[in-house]
């Protein structure tokens, strides 16, 4: 019985990780390449900097707050969105760069 439970749990865990998607939203011409995106809980967004100067990615939203620091062109950093809700993502250096992430 214990063995079967372990197998079921392992399968469940695998299926969750298989279902989790990775989305890519670049930072180009001082804007996120999308203004908004709807993703599933557990998905990841990758933020490559495609501009020839530094950008930052951060959020202070209630359901997800993070600060990826600042990074140069060619560098990419990712965030996993593990809670449902609306998250406003910004570049602190250029605050008019805004992305709305709806996590379902």
């Amino acid at each position: 019985m214990k063995f079967f439970m372990t197998v079921i749990l392992a399968l469940l865990s695998m299926s969750t990780s298989v279902m989790a998607a990775e989305h890519v939203i670049g930072q180009k011409n001082k804007a996120f390449t999308k203004k908004s995106i709807t993703i599933k809980k557990g998905d990841t967004i990758k933020f490559p900097n495609q501009d020839p100067f530094f950008h930052n990615v951060y959020s202070m939203s209630e359901s997800k707050s993070f600060d990826l620091g600042s990074y140069a062109k060619g560098v990419s950093k990712s965030v996993k969105f593990d809670k449902q809700g609306e998250v406003i993502v910004q570049c602190a250096i250029h605050p008019f760069m805004k992305l709305k992430v709806k996590v379902e």
Partner: peptide, 11 residues
Amino acid sequence: GRYRFTPIPLM
């Protein structure tokens, strides 16, 4: 400066 409105170390 900007830290007052965006309280992360970079600002």
